[in-house]
Design a protein around this nucleic acid. Structure first.
Lengths: 320, 320
DNA sequence: GAGGTGAATGATATCGATATCAAGATATCG
DNA sequence: CGATATCTTGATATCGATATCATTCACCTC
């Protein structure tokens, strides 16, 4: 910038003003300086600016969806959110700093203007940890206890459960089963919604705990029900893969879907949609979720009041 | 840092040295300063350090896989690579700055120590654009013309095509069809590999151009073949979705897979693996790809010699 | 005991930008 | 025509860290 100043025959500060479109500088001077800057390929030193302005124009995104730290980055789940976040933040002129929880101790994260936490961690420990940093923070997940310094955005898992229950009830199902892992706060909400709605009609679902969200796990779940000779006519699975596994096992056992047993999955993956038969599923709009997360951090950074928000889910009824 | 210096009764510079584990400082002093730093929650100002050291310990990842700029972040493809990149870089103490091409003009990207470009853009224009920045750069994609300042990492699409051809030949197929979009450099490589190997055995495949990589597009492709009464006994589809669509159409038309027609997809998605029948497909290891990308940039940043590299593909033979 | 060695610490300058205050040039007004 | 307002520019200090060179002091050797 000093060089530019010399070239243009003005002072550094005038160059600075010209490049930042300050109205304090003469239009002609501004043009001249900007032309020179382009010509010589001048590049602003972001560190210097950030140092002076005491802000980084950066939001750190910490990904930690599962207890298994090894695999966190691999699930398509956080990655979809990331898409929305990234688009919204970059178009607002902010940078996205991507880290896993291990990397989050690095200094760069602390320099961020705000934090987006994907996944609350077991027992909210991650949330508490980052709350201490005192940065504007938005968390993706189930609505927490609140009262902290952070905002929560998530999809309304409780409502998702309710919708599935309503659907089952409306088509006359009376012996529903829930497959999933209620230790996970978001899954728990789905279960609660499911139970709440069923209970209002005097029905009590069976809870089948499954930790792995794989196709095999779904197959296994149904087989175990069958082996125990449990009577059931509807399955609410916490993921599409579980649901597809369940259907596959049902078919093997000579059951037809949806005549004998209705099955509804969760997440409405393309995978489920192109399954045969096409899977009914609860859709969460992750793109929108990401955008919302980004908007909330930005609002917090700008000191605007921000509220937690749960996004509506949609039950997509296909063939199962 | 100045405050810490006063508290500890030493100078700023000594504090700096103590916190950076410099051997120039007395062990006892170092302990004392570090204890104070912890106690008062001291946080290093990264901007200041970066300014002084003239580096940012940051690698920018620019995502631009498809001509359609709107959707770039949504394909699971770049996102998987991102996982590997992120883990490798953060564990090496580097930060990952995530941007789309639109956001890449922002100053923060230019401040990065290195660049990872996911997707070369149509006609390599993106590559050329960023090459100008003069930063260490690694590009994911098909091996380019080389000779530029960047390194290319990608999976060996040509070999992938060859492997599929070999498989078809080994099971006696004589009328293969290729479905995909040869305008895309990576797809083109697959096609070339496919053709090269087949030609060695005097066989010429049929090329069916399809731009969309959806299930519907695959269905449509096979129907059009059928309508034209083309004779074919093997299909190499450029994506698993295309392959699954093709199979679905074949089944509708009364053909059996793989008895009448063999089908092989690309990418070995979980989707394909849990398809019925389980899809044969060419696997690219994206996790490894991401790790490799990260390692190469780091090497370039450290001034070590780096070479472009194509990763081997694996043909996973399942039921189709 | 003079000179040399090495360990520990400090003073100062510096990285590249911007905020603040000051000042010169020009325009406007009665 | 002088005074005040407006526009434009500049000098200086500053953000928070680290590199460089200088200094102090204890200890060792001959």
């Amino acid at each position: 910038m000093a060089d530019l100043a010399e070239l243009a025959g003005v002072s550094k500060i005038t160059v600075s003003r010209a490049l930042s479109e300050s109205p304090l500088v003469n239009a002609e001077t501004r043009e001249r300086v900007q032309a020179l800057a382009r010509k010589h390929g001048y590049k602003l030193n972001v560190s210097a600016r950030n140092l002076r302005l005491r802000r980084s124009h950066t939001v750190a995104v910490i990904v930690e969806m599962k207890p298994s730290t090894e695999r966190t980055m691999w699930d398509p789940y956080p990655l979809s959110l990331l898409g929305g976040i990234s688009q919204e933040l970059t178009s607002a002129g902010y940078s996205v700093l991507l880290t896993t929880r291990q990397g989050a101790s690095h200094a760069a994260v602390q320099a961020a203007d705000g934090l987006i936490l994907l996944g609350q961690g077991a027992r909210q420990d991650a949330v508490r940890l980052y709350d201490k940093l005192g940065l504007p923070m938005v968390v993706w997940g189930a609505a927490g206890d609140g009262g902290d310094n952070h905002t929560v955005v998530g999809s309304d898992n409780h409502q998702g459960g309710v919708e599935v229950a309503e659907r089952f009830l409306s088509i006359g199902r009376r012996h529903p089963v829930f497959i999933g892992n209620p230790d996970h706060p978001e899954m728990a909400q789905r279960l609660f919604g499911f139970i709440d709605e069923l209970t209002r009609h005097g029905i009590k679902p069976l809870l089948l705990r499954r930790v792995d969200f794989t196709l095999e796990s779904g197959v296994d779940a149904v087989r175990s029900l069958w082996a125990r000779k449990v009577r059931f006519d509807a399955i609410f699975a916490c993921s599409d893969l579980l649901a597809m596994g369940a259907i596959r096992a049902l078919v093997e056992l000579g059951q037809t879907v949806p005549n004998d047993v209705s099955v509804i999955g969760y997440d409405d993956t393309p995978l489920g949609a192109s399954f045969l038969p096409p899977l009914s599923s609860v859709r969460q709009n992750w793109q929108e979720g990401g955008v919302l997360l980004a908007r909330k951090v930005l609002a917090m950074i700008h000191g605007q009041p921000v509220q937690s928000q749960m996004m509506a889910t949609t039950l997509v009824v296909r063939a199962t």
